[in-house]
């Protein structure tokens, strides 16, 4: 039985002032897939995530979640997608609880108090709910950022270098959170240049170099132990 296609990207291109950031990306994901896209700085990884999240319009090509086209139904994308990046998207001068209350209100979430309590417990910040974000460590901010991203119960989670700036303890906690999200059958796309952390939990792997994706495979179709050799063979000569 064939799985339902969740996300389909066809010939996606993006150019800024004559520079081609993406040169025709194609990929297909099923519900529950965890794709990590590796690539050097300037490869177009963040641009790709910003297009999928509706923050940036594509120059051409199509992005679809189920039957919804990104350009025709951006509101459906925004309801279904969450972004976790090295930027927390949190207000420093609000408390953890106030931040979540604000985002829950924007998404029109009913029963907010219960949902916020549940999310703060999930990321281990319930006891610090009344502390301002400015008092949080980078790791705590990243955990709260996960709670913020889950406020609308998204189907698709986009992670842009989520391990950036995290210490070992915070990175371990993030790995556990990602494993939990994956076990909940959420579709996840992570972009990173960290080969060791990026290979955990994944079901699909892509390599993005100079706006093109020359490598896109199921993890069980590749030799994961020798992936670093594969990666460097694609990016060597393209490093900026």
């Amino acid at each position: 039985m064939s799985e339902t296609v969740f996300l389909k990207i066809d010939d996606l291109k993006k150019a800024y002032n004559g520079f081609s950031a993406l040169k025709g990306i194609n990929l297909t994901l099923h519900k529950g897939d965890f794709l990590t896209i590796f690539g050097p700085n300037g490869a177009g990884k963040t641009t790709l995530l910003r297009i999928i999240s509706t923050l940036l319009p594509p120059s051409s090509g199509r992005v679809k979640i189920f039957e919804y086209d990104l350009e025709e139904h951006p509101e459906e994308f925004r309801k279904s997608v969450a972004v976790i990046s090295h930027q927390s998207l949190l207000y420093n001068d609000l408390t953890a609880k106030e931040n979540l209350e604000f985002y829950a209100a924007l998404y029109g979430i009913g029963e907010r108090a219960e949902k916020i309590k549940e999310l703060l417990r999930l990321v281990g910040l319930y006891e610090r709910r009344n502390s301002q974000v400015s008092e949080f460590s980078r790791g705590m901010q990243q955990r709260l950022s996960i709670a913020r991203a889950l406020i609308n119960d998204p189907y698709l989670i986009l992670l842009d270098e989520p391990y950036s700036g995290l210490d070992q303890h915070a990175a371990t906690l993030l790995k556990k959170q990602l494993a939990l999200l994956h076990s909940q059958k959420r579709t996840i796309i992570m972009v990173t240049h960290n080969l060791a952390l990026g290979m955990r939990e994944v079901t699909k792997v892509g390599i993005l170099v100079n706006g093109e994706m020359p490598f896109f495979r199921n993890r069980n179709e590749m030799d994961a132990d020798r992936f670093d050799e594969t990666y460097f063979s694609y990016v060597s000569g393209n490093l900026q």
Binding site: L55, K79, V83, L89, N92, Y107, R148
Partner: peptide
């Protein structure tokens, strides 16, 4: 200014508002 710290403006633009 508050929307620019931690890219909170992205949080607004990602929401259905």
């Amino acid at each position: 200014a508050h929307e620019n710290e931690n890219r909170c403006i992205d949080g607004l633009l990602l929401s259905p508002i």
